[in-house]
Design a protein around this nucleic acid. Structure first.
Ligand code: MN
Ligand code: MN
Ligand code: ZN
Ligand code: ZN
Lengths: 158, 158
DNA sequence: ACTGCTAACGACAATCACTCCCACTAACGA
DNA sequence: TCGTTAGTGGGAGTGATTGTCGTTAGCAGT
């Protein structure tokens, strides 16, 4: 971590720098908007492809950088898909409270879930075994109603 | 999935094959024992390295194959480490019931946890949103008492 | 509006966990 | 002991993610 917040110029002047805000770039906006449009979780590669289709291609590295940054800001969630790929989902600026997800395995559609009971349970378990700095992951996967219906139709075609 | 259980020989005899049991190989035993010795979760690469150190090297592919197989048998758990690497942990033959983990972030020490309440909660949430084929992951991470103590001592040395 | 500083880009190389492939080996029932 | 074939392993291949570094473009200051 570099030393920020205080800058001494070659002329000897001393200036106070406000919280060094990050620059607003078109690429950053594009990534954010694509992520926000997607209904469920999508991978960095998905987003990269979507941007290319939209006719405003953004470098893959840049996509990764912005996704990371959004996660740090709490504006996006990451979960590791079952096959180990990181997938991201936009969380409105306001929705940054702690929560969990109910994710459709087929289409990625996601419902946000909060449950006081689970939080308390996790804390209780931890204190029971004398663990501290506790954190937890809770994700529920399944097949949503629309996807189930689609699957049924396909089965009939056979 | 291939057709198993019935074998017709070239001589025309028909034979019933019992559950096609897998062969007991030295490699399989080695992988299982290394996994069983490890206290917490370890990666395939870790296990591969450990075997090499022990002087009985096993091919990396083989390590992966056996870990997968152990998982399918319910004799091992997999979780994706925060950085996306799959990590495995031995679960005694008997412990094959559904359960979750309380894992020390520092040393990997793991406590197995079961909670009827959580299972029911997950099921309820799923039915509430009309999801089927439900599955869930619940992991709690923290710092165990011994590791916390160690950290404190180091802090004092400064 | 013009300028300088430097954060942010992006093409490409590099890493790395994991999977495939396939000739070869060894477990084990007959 | 023998034949069948599951199991092995080295090496090549895959695909996501990260690192590099010369170039581009926000934006604060003038
Ligand atoms: Mn929670
Ligand atoms: Mn377990
Ligand atoms: Zn769905
Ligand atoms: Zn510990």
């Amino acid at each position: 971590m570099s030393c920020r917040g205080l800058l001494i110029t070659v002329t000897g002047k001393m200036q106070l720098m406000a919280t060094p805000k990050q620059r607003a770039t078109v690429q950053g906006g594009a990534v954010r908007s694509v992520l926000a449009d997607g209904a469920g979780f999508s991978s960095a590669q998905d987003i990269h492809a979507a941007l290319r289709l939209q006719g405003k291609p953004v470098g893959l590295s840049t996509v990764y950088r912005h996704l990371q940054s959004l996660v740090e800001q709490g504006a996006a969630d990451v979960i590791q898909s079952p096959d180990g790929e990181a997938t991201y989902r936009y969380c409105g600026e306001t929705t940054s409270a702690h929560h969990h997800h109910l994710v459709c395995r087929k289409c990625g559609h996601t419902e946000e879930v909060t449950a006081r009971a689970i939080e308390r349970w996790a804390a209780d378990i931890a204190s029971k075994f004398d663990f501290s700095d506790v954190d937890h992951t809770v994700e529920i996967f399944g097949t949503c109603a629309p996807c189930r219906r689609t699957a049924d139709e396909i089965a009939l075609d056979t």
